[in-house]
Design a protein around this nucleic acid. Structure first.
Length: 276
DNA sequence: CTCTGGTCCTGTACGC
DNA sequence: TGCGTACAGGACCAGA
């Protein structure tokens, strides 16, 4: 589920619950979710640190502790539950548990087991993976049509693929890229070196607009069977193309198409979105 | 260097 | 009902 608006919704929900609570226990039920440091060091270092803030960059959650930051990436299916130690839960897909000093637990749940954690020091994490690979968010001052033109001038990548690459513009995933390209009237298979100034400006402004609107609406909830923290957004009701194959385009009434672009399901209107 | 496709996983939907 | 297959919102990595 989680692209930038969904992760922001999780951040906003978690921060007031966790702030100023100390981690007094840690349980790791699947070792491979901890990318660094080694498990034993991870457990020892995180213990007795207090959660001071919950931040976010693009899709990466950043739990700011006393000395370290805990970086959490939800990938496809990661969710958090905040429950008392004896509250019932289906433990099958819980991969990590933090015990807090107020009797509650923060439980990380991930059916597909793609999520990742890094514990790094506050002073260095911004120059290390995974943070360093995350480019600016669409509303960053840095993101201008000249910036994109420079990044893309010699590239033959399809624009859909280029926008999923988090190093140039961050925060968009498969849903929002389809929506941004529809709003910008650009066909997803257009190669990025063919985009003109107007196209680039339209990508930036629509990416900002769509992500901000979705944040206001609590993100999108698509095919989410378990609600984590009661987080259910409503942006899915405003989707123009994503998940609308064989339905009529709201703009021109032609039929929405679905194809694969670099192996990702891609929805578009081939009348409104002209290929260059 | 750029770009593509496979891969990590489990669960669900759908066709036969 | 059962089985096989395709697919799912992300990102990394090998290899062309």
């Amino acid at each position: 589920m989680p692209e930038l608006p969904e992760v922001e919704t999780v951040r906003k929900t978690l921060e007031p619950l966790l702030i100023n609570h100390k981690i007094i226990g840690v349980r790791i039920l699947l070792n491979k979710v901890i990318k660094d440091p080694d498990i034993l060091i991870f457990k020892k270092r995180i213990l007795n640190q207090t959660i001071r803030q919950v931040q976010r960059k693009a899709k990466l959650l950043i739990f700011v502790l006393d000395d370290d930051v805990l970086l959490s990436h939800l990938r496809m299916e990661g969710k958090y539950y905040y429950q008392k130690q004896d509250d019932l839960i289906n433990w099958k897909h819980v991969l990590l548990v933090l015990d807090l000093d107020n009797g509650y637990q923060l439980r990380y749940h991930d059916t597909r087991r793609f999520g990742t954690f890094h514990l790094q020091t506050k002073t260095t994490y911004q120059s290390l993976k995974p943070y360093i690979n995350i480019g600016p968010e669409p509303w960053s001052q840095e993101v201008t049509s000249d910036y994109l033109k420079n990044k893309w001038k010699n590239k033959k990548q399809k624009v859909k693929t280029a926008l999923l690459d988090q190093t140039t513009i961050s925060g968009l995933g498969n849903i929002y890229v389809d929506e941004v390209l529809f709003a910008a009237k650009i066909h997803p298979e257009t190669t990025v070196n063919k985009l003109n100034n107007q196209n680039l400006t339209a990508i930036i402004s629509n990416a900002s607009k769509i992500l901000k609107l979705s944040i206001e609406l609590g993100g999108s909830t698509i095919a989410t069977y378990t609600s984590s923290l009661g987080v259910r957004g409503s942006f899915q009701d405003y989707l123009q193309v994503h998940m609308r194959v064989n339905q009529q385009c709201f703009t021109c009434k032609n039929i929405i198409q679905k194809s694969k672009v670099n192996n990702r399901g891609t929805y578009f209107c081939n009348h409104c979105q002209v290929k260059k």
